[in-house]
Design a protein around this nucleic acid. Structure first.
Lengths: 314, 314
DNA sequence: GACCGAAACGAAAATATCTTTCATGAGTGA
DNA sequence: TCACTCATGAAAGATATTTTCGTTTCGGTC
C-alpha cells in the first residue's frame, strides 16, 4: 500500500520514522567508522562492500555471503549496521555509488584520438569533441548577425546556397529544410552553375556561402556575383577575417576546434556549421510560422506513406 | 541464472535489441528510442521510470505496477524491453542513474522552442539539445556492433551506402570520408540505381543503410538485395526493432530525442547519425592506418591550392 | 583443565519480491 | 460481422530476502 503519490514532492524523503537515513556516498567512511564495532564476519562483508561496490551490487545476499564466506544472516546484519533497512537497500545504495564512481571517472578524456584507442574510447572522445564544438559555436555566435540573416532569409524571394565538399552537404541540409517550410532555396555545388545562377539574383534575394576556410574560390565567386547584383549575402565560415567575408553582408562564425590526424577539421567544422544552419532554419520558421507550420505538416504527411506502419512491426 | 535468449531466429541476424548489456546512464535515451515499439501500458511504465528514476528505484515491482496502474507482468516486460534481465536489474540501474543525476550537474531542463523565443534562446536550446543527443547516442551505441561494422568496412572490397532525404546527406558524408582514406565507397540516393548496384555486391562487400525510421522502403530494398547477395549489411537507425534490421548483420542505434514542431525529429536524428558515421570513419581509419594516413595527407594536399593563401588575408 | 554465559554465527523456515504462465478481452483487418 | 492477434493482468511458480532459532565459539572463572 502506497499513499506516497505526490510525485513532485521531496523526492527522496522516505519518511519512515527510522533514525538513520541511507548514506549516499559516505559509505566507505561509514565502514571505517563502524568497523571496530563489528564482528569478524561482518567486517569481512563490510570490507568486500567498500572495496568493490559495483561488484557487490551485482550479487544477491546469498552471493555476497558465499563470496565473503559467511551467511545470509550476517550480510543482512551488516547492512543493518551500516544504516540500511536491509540488504536490498544497501544494494541499491551500492549501485548508486558505483554509478557515481564511474561517472566521476569520465572527464579524464584526453581529447586526441590515438591509433590504438579502443572503439569505446573513440566514441566517447568524438562525442565529447562534438559537444565541445557545439558549445563553442553557440557561445561564439553573434546573435545580431544571426538575426539579420534570419530576417533576410525569411523575406527573401529566393535563396541560393553555396558549398563544396563537406560544406556542400551542409548547404543541402539547409536547402532541404527551407524547402520544407515553403521557401524557395537551391543548393549549388557546381561552381559554374552557381555563378550562372548568382547573376540572376537581385535585391531581396539571399545568397549564402558556407566555407570553413573562407578561402574556397568556388564558393566565393558566386557569393561575389550575388553581392554585386545587390542580393543580401551571408557567409558561414570559421575565419571571420577571410576573403569570403568581403562580400558578405552578414557573417556567421563557426568555431574551429583542435584537429588531429584521425579527426580532420572537416568533422568539427561540419558540426559547427550544422548548428548554425539549424539556428537559421528555426529562426526563419519562427518568423514565417503561419506559413511554415502548415508546410511542415504537409511535408510530413506526404512522407508518411513512404514509411511503414507507425509501430515497430508493420 | 537464466539463459532466456529464446528469440534466436536462424540465419545471421544481429539481434534487434537483445544484444545490448544493461545501460547505465543511457536510460532516458533508451526509453525514447524504444517507446514507439512499446504498448500503451509499457509506455506508462517507461515514462514513470524515465521521469523519476529515484522514486521508481524505491519501489518494488508491485509498487511500480500500482503507481502506473498496470500489472507486475507489464513492469517486468518493460524492464526486459529496456534491455535488462528483469525488474531487479532495472531497479539497480535506476538507483545508479538517480545517484548520478543527484551528484551530477543541474537537472536537464529542456524547454521546447517556442515561436516567440528570442534568437539567443533558440541558439542555446538548439545547442543544448544537440549536445544531449550526442551524449545519448554515445551512451547507447553498442560498441560490439560498432566494432564489427568497422571491421567489415575496413576489409570491404567496396562499400555502398543508402540514404534518402536528410539521411542521404549523412550517407554522402560517410562516403566522402571513406573515399578520402582510399576506400571504395558510393552513396546512392536513387532507389532504383541503388538496387541495381546492390545486386552486384557479394560476400566481403559492405552495404550500409541509414534511415531514422527504419521503415523507408527505398533504403530497405537495396539493403535487402545486398543482404541476399551475401554482402555484410549494416543499418544505422533510430528504431532497433524496425524492418530494416531484418536485413542487417550489424545494427547501430541512433538516439531519438524529443521533437517539437519547430525542431523536427530529422534534426536530432541527423546529429546522431553523423556521430555514428564519424565513429565508423575513425574506427576504419585506425584499422587501415598505414594506408589511410597517406591518403588523408594526399587529399588534404590536393585541396590546398583550391583555398586561397593558408592565411586569412590573400 | 572443565565449566558457564554471552555473543557470533549459520541453517533453515518464513516472508517478501520477482518471474512466468495462462486465460481473457480489446482492438484490427478481412 | 467474424476470426484473429496481441496486449494485459491474475495468479501460480520461482527467487531472493529476512527472521528465527539452535549450534558454535570465545572469554573468563572455578
Amino acid at each position: 500500500m502506497k499513499e506516497t503519490f505526490a510525485h513532485a514532492s521531496g523526492g527522496r524523503r522516505a519518511g519512515g520514522g527510522g533514525t538513520a537515513p541511507p548514506a549516499p556516498a559516505a559509505l566507505a567512511a561509514k565502514v571505517r567508522t563502524l568497523a571496530p564495532s563489528m564482528t569478524r564476519s561482518m567486517q569481512r562483508v563490510a570490507e568486500a562492500v567498500a572495496g568493490d561496490p559495483a561488484g557487490c551490487a551485482a550479487l544477491t545476499v546469498t552471493g555476497l555471503a558465499e563470496l565473503t564466506g559467511t551467511s545470509e544472516a550476517t550480510v543482512v546484519r551488516t547492512a543493518r549496521l551500516l544504516g540500511y533497512p536491509g540488504y536490498r537497500d544497501l544494494r541499491l545504495a551500492l549501485a548508486g555509488l558505483a554509478a557515481q564512481q564511474q561517472s566521476g571517472r569520465a572527464p579524464a578524456i584526453t581529447t586526441d584520438i590515438a591509433v590504438d584507442d579502443p572503439i569505446a574510447d573513440v566514441v566517447a572522445k568524438l562525442a565529447y569533441d562534438e559537444q565541445q564544438t557545439l558549445a563553442d559555436t553557440a557561445a561564439g555566435l553573434d546573435t545580431g548577425q544571426l538575426g539579420a540573416a534570419v530576417a533576410a532569409l525569411a523575406a527573401a524571394r529566393r535563396t541560393d546556397v553555396y558549398g563544396i565538399g563537406a560544406s556542400g552537404l551542409v548547404a543541402q541540409d539547409l536547402t532541404q529544410k527551407l524547402l520544407r517550410i515553403g521557401l524557395i532555396a537551391h543548393a549549388h555545388n557546381d561552381p559554374h552553375l552557381a555563378v550562372t545562377n548568382a547573376v540572376q539574383l537581385r535585391a531581396g534575394d539571399v545568397a549564402l556561402a558556407i566555407t570553413h576556410s573562407g578561402s574556397t574560390g568556388d564558393v566565393i565567386e558566386p557569393l561575389r556575383a550575388a553581392f554585386e547584383r545587390g542580393a543580401t549575402t551571408v557567409a558561414i565560415t570559421g575565419r571571420p577575417d577571410s576573403p569570403v567575408t568581403q562580400y558578405a553582408d552578414h557573417v556567421l562564425t563557426t568555431s574551429t576546434s583542435r584537429e588531429s590526424e584521425l579527426r580532420p577539421a572537416a568533422m568539427s567544422s561540419r558540426t559547427s556549421q550544422l548548428l548554425v544552419v539549424d539556428c537559421l532554419f528555426v529562426g526563419v520558421a519562427q518568423r514565417t510560422y503561419d506559413s511554415a507550420a502548415p508546410a511542415l505538416a504537409a511535408s510530413y504527411e506526404a512522407l508518411a506513406h513512404r514509411h511503414g506502419g507507425s509501430r515497430g512491426r508493420p
